[in-house]
Amino acid sequence: MITLIRVDDRLIHGQCIVRVLADFKIEKIVIVDDFTASNPVLKNVFLLATPPQAKSVIFSVEETKPNLLQFIENNENVLLLMRSPTVALELFKSHPQLKMELNIGPISYRPDTIKVTSYTYLSTEEIEAVNEIAERRVRVYFNQTIDQKIIEWNEVKNLLRSG
């Protein structure tokens, strides 16, 4: 069962390990990232960095698609983790049965990005992707850890248009 779908450009990191895994009682982390999946040493580092209470698997976007159904249907609490909303959009398209909620956590500044929340910067392409996800009636919200404020996509999207 997929408990949380999260976009977070540092994938596994402090907030993720210290808070998110505990708050959602995560048992398995499915990391969807082409770069990490393509480098065997890096892949190993991620597997080794996962704390003992959870297990990680790392797939490229293409590898994820045939495997995703088993994580939707199993009994474990699964965290589906990726770097970018564009990846999330692809998965929502290929798997309409996914949980209709997307949590966007920290995404760092890059040139040509717009500040959406104090911790999330999105490129135009990523904003398009989020819009398309929201149009599929998925609830998109921004939140770092559950003890902090939740910001709904609906609250910020109009500001982005007018700004």
Partner: peptide, 21 residues
Amino acid sequence: SGIKTALMGPFAGIGDSLYVG
């Protein structure tokens, strides 16, 4: 830069939980 970016997450996780926490 790919490797630098990829590693910062896992080591933040280990550092925050093992050292700071």
